[in-house]
Amino acid sequence: MRANRIIIHVLAIGLAALVLAPFLWLVRMSFQTNADIFAFPPHLWFSPTWANYAALWQSEFRDSFVNSAVVTTSSTLLSMLVGVPAAYALSRMRSRSNALSLWIIASRLAPPTAFAIPYFLAYRDLHLLDTRLGLVVIYLTFNISLVIWLMRSFFENTPRALEEAAWIDGAGFWRALVSVVLPTAAPGLAATAILCFVFSWNDFFFALILTRSNAMTAPVAVVNFMNYAGWEWGRIAAGGTMVMLPVLVFSLFVRRFLINGLTAGAVKG
């Protein structure tokens, strides 16, 4: 048994190292000078430098990072605000038909490229191109379906008896939802919010098509370091690290909820 456990631990550590290797390589590169990055054979030891991060922060990347933060936070909050009540309503609907839910998920069935030109043209006419509001709206439309689908299953697993008990105790509809149902579905809320956050934060395609310079987000700004006459590898690595950081920190804070949320109902028949 002990030998088995050691083997499993070694395998787990090996697998984790394998998965984390590209990430560690990127972080390492972000602290290297160009000469160190291209040194051949690669140097194991080098003098770390903050120069890439300093240069990044003096460039338009800083504004793009702020854009990403504003757009992602707004769209996640709005998606939850609109999607959670909708999911609750659907979960308590008496109809057994799934047609409505299928229509809701339809926006996520087609590849993003299918929406590119219609959105571009509509946004141009509505003067939403290159605006934060435009990006919030687009992420909202895609995230709402995700919120509804995920949260609906969480609410369906919440016993109705709980909210009925609250009603008997005199709580109104909204009070029962806020004070009884939502706390019970907290892991689901956290997991859904993280997925919305990650989707919006990491999106490249819509940010590429629908922004120019004012509302450009961090993932697109990183690619802008791929200059015609040469790529700025140090800045690309520093930008990549900065883009990963918020998601990583956010996930670490709520990882217990995330695991509970994602596995909830996994063994339910």
Binding site: I117, L121, I209, S213, N224
Partner: peptide, 23 residues
């Protein structure tokens, strides 16, 4: 002026021009 990376520029400009944009 909007300055973009070469691949980004080409993608955006192709879409902009193909839709008769006036940006």
């Amino acid at each position: 002026f909007d300055i973009q990376a070469f691949p980004i520029y080409n993608q955006r400009m192709d879409l902009e021009l193909s839709t008769g944009g006036s940006s």
